[in-house]
């Protein structure tokens, strides 16, 4: 794993973004771009990242950012990637999309691009709701979380996009969170070095949406991993390995309540929903452990 001191000092996301204080999606972007370097184009569907760039003619980025319609990011990246390769360019094409733009409205374009073997990296930063429009539920919102369209807490479970993506049998797939920046950085590097489609799913705690203080977002990300709510792993050509921070967590998990109680969005969550969440964590961990051991 890379050492913190070895992560490049260059910034491609300047300090003038209009993101909320404590936004870990923008923190993720900083590491992504440090790993990708300047020969990179970001393709961004409608999401918080469309806003945090600032207002024309300004931009907070020092790489080109192509903004595109909400449902369309992966299709746009398909065209861009083919075009670059047709003229012999090795430019990184990275989709940086929210969970809504990935698991809901964008899933069709994503599936198509993965199936066609498009050479690109798709990063879904998951703040578990529609941040841009003020925190409505998405398919990625966990059960029990209050959003503005689930004022009583969401009753459906979080859509498992990782298994949907896995069904496309792409060369590289991983999960990450900027609370573990070295792990994130390495995974982006690996993804970009792997030809064909790569997909990284990043958990991005969001202060206003999760109702946490601005200085707590990294701590909450760590707690997600420690409780097993978020599992860090990567799958290279079908081989799954669980990443170091989650290995530790799997040996001794922190109680789920410690993660939930840090966040205002889970206020008043019922015992039965907590149990359901707990069970889905256990199932997920067991499934991943089995897969890593080659038992499936």
């Amino acid at each position: 794993m890379i050492r913190m001191a070895e992560i490049p000092k260059e910034e491609y996301l300047e300090k003038c973004t209009t993101a909320c204080a404590g936004c870990t999606s923008s923190l993720t972007l900083r590491y992504v771009l440090k790993a990708a370097g300047p020969d990179t184009v970001l393709v961004v569907p409608a999401c918080c990242t469309s806003i945090l760039q600032g207002t024309y003619p300004n931009t907070a980025f020092s790489v080109p950012v192509y903004n595109i319609a909400f449902a369309a990011a992966a299709a746009c990246a398909s065209g861009m990637s083919e075009a670059f390769s047709s003229i012999g360019k090795k430019t990184n094409v990275i989709v940086y999309a929210g969970d809504g733009g990935t698991v809901d409205i964008g899933i069709q374009a994503l599936s198509g691009a993965l199936e066609r073997g498009t050479d690109f990296l798709y990063i879904c930063y998951d703040n578990e709701a529609y941040g841009n429009t003020g925190m409505q539920r998405s398919g990625a919102t966990p059960m029990g979380a209050r959003t503005t369209t689930t004022p009583g807490g969401k009753t459906d479970a979080k859509k498992d996009i990782d298994r949907i993506v896995a069904a496309h049998n792409i060369p590289y797939q991983a999960t990450a969170t900027p609370a573990y920046p070295k792990d994130l950085f390495d995974k982006v590097k690996t993804a970009l070095a792997t030809p064909g489609p790569s997909f990284i799913h990043v958990l991005a705690p969001c202060p206003p949406g999760w109702r946490i203080a601005s200085d707590m977002s990294v701590a909450v990300g760590k707690m997600a991993v420690k409780t097993g709510s978020w599992v860090l792993w990567e799958r290279k050509y079908g081989e799954l390995s669980i990443s170091a921070p989650s290995k530790g967590a799997m040996k001794k998990r922190a109680p789920l309540r410690e993660y939930l109680s840090l966040q205002g969005r889970f206020k008043g969550i019922s015992e039965s929903v907590v149990n359901e969440l707990e069970q889905s964590i256990e199932k997920n961990l067991a499934r991943l452990a089995k897969e890593e051991a080659g038992e499936c």
Binding site: I105, Y130, N132, T133, G134, Q136, T148, T149, T150, P151, G152
Partner: peptide
């Protein structure tokens, strides 16, 4: 489906239905 500046309509109806 939410979209600025319609969002409040969706949110309000979700609230009405939940309550």
């Amino acid at each position: 489906y939410p979209i600025t500046p319609q969002t409040e309509i969706v949110e309000q109806i979700a609230e009405y239905v939940t309550s």
